[in-house]
Amino acid sequence: MRWTAVGLAVLLALAGCAGSGDDTPADASPPSVVLTTDDGEIELAPWSFCWSGNGGGACGDGFEPEDPPAVGAPMRVDITYAENGWLFDATFTEVTDDPCPLTLTTTAEPIGDGVHRLEPIGPAGDWQVRLFGTGPQGDLSVTFVWTTSSAADIDIVATETVCAS
């Protein structure tokens, strides 16, 4: 009888620790990032984030999508985020078969409450763009593909060549 009581206690403790996986508050994950162009909107869920909200917080380290959504060839992309006080850096990586693609980083310009503007940088071509956002609640990353139609002048924060080993 004593072993049964101990076994039952251990079983109940383990069941309590395991949980159902649904115990995370809804606001423990960041809201999506919305990209707006003349052709419409694309909503991007963060693939990596650390977030703290009302009553909860979570970190999730995912992988950049293998086939990120494309915005086409707009002249600019507006980034809308539901939380105030956020800043976004954009790292443009040339889409190429070259093992050392050109990579350029710039900062999106804040233009209103929760809205930032991103202009093309570097030479015309196809770019995989990783947005890294930081704000009072944490940080996040989203990725999309952008085809730029002409070389552009903009403040470049960093330039590097990324070589695959």
Results as ranks from 00 to 15, higher is better:
3 W>M: 10
3 W>H: 09
4 T>A: 15
11 L>I: 12
14 L>C: 10
14 L>K: 06
15 A>V: 13
15 A>S: 15
16 G>Q: 01
19 G>D: 01
23 D>T: 09
23 D>I: 07
24 T>C: 10
25 P>H: 00
25 P>R: 01
26 A>F: 12
26 A>M: 07
30 P>K: 02
30 P>F: 03
30 P>H: 04
32 S>M: 05
36 T>F: 02
42 I>N: 00
45 A>K: 06
47 W>I: 00
47 W>K: 01
48 S>A: 13
49 F>W: 12
52 S>V: 12
55 G>K: 05
56 G>Y: 00
58 A>H: 06
58 A>Y: 00
59 C>V: 01
61 D>I: 09
64 E>Q: 10
70 A>V: 00
74 P>I: 04
76 R>W: 10
77 V>H: 11
79 I>V: 14
80 T>R: 14
80 T>G: 13
80 T>L: 13
82 A>F: 00
84 N>D: 08
84 N>T: 13
85 G>S: 13
87 L>W: 13
87 L>I: 09
90 A>K: 03
91 T>P: 02
93 T>R: 14
96 T>S: 13
96 T>R: 11
98 D>M: 03
98 D>I: 02
101 P>M: 06
114 G>I: 01
114 G>P: 02
119 E>L: 13
123 P>M: 11
130 R>H: 08
131 L>V: 07
136 P>F: 01
136 P>A: 05
136 P>C: 00
139 D>W: 10
143 T>N: 11
146 W>R: 07
148 T>P: 08
150 S>N: 07
150 S>T: 13
151 A>D: 13
153 D>W: 04
155 D>V: 08
156 I>R: 03
158 A>F: 08
158 A>N: 13
159 T>M: 15
159 T>A: 15
161 T>R: 15
162 V>H: 10
162 V>E: 14
163 C>R: 12
163 C>V: 06
164 A>R: 14
